[in-house]
């Protein structure tokens, strides 16, 4: 699943490690989500959106 997690995280000068710690997953999981190789649960999507101060739409909604 394509998403804007990496872009938003870098925009906020946050490292993968910091985001991983905030949402209580491993850095590997964050890396996989950013690359679109793992589809997180809604619960984790919400946690990431909150940590980055964005809405689910802004991070995960695909616009053609």
């Amino acid at each position: 699943m394509k998403n804007k997690v990496k872009f938003t995280r870098m925009e906020q000068k946050m490292t993968q490690e910091q985001l991983a710690r905030q949402v209580k997953v491993t850095r590997q999981t964050i890396g996989l989500i950013e690359k679109g190789e793992y589809n997180p649960t809604l619960q984790l999507c919400v946690a990431i959106a909150k940590a980055l101060g964005k809405t689910l739409d802004e991070l995960f909604w695909e616009v053609d």
Binding site: K6, R9, M10, Q16, R27, Q28, G31, L32, E34, K35
Partner: peptide, 11 residues
């Protein structure tokens, strides 16, 4: 295996 996998995911 973990290192190989993680290397591709690093920012």
């Amino acid at each position: 295996r973990s290192y190989q996998k993680n290397r591709e995911l690093i920012d």
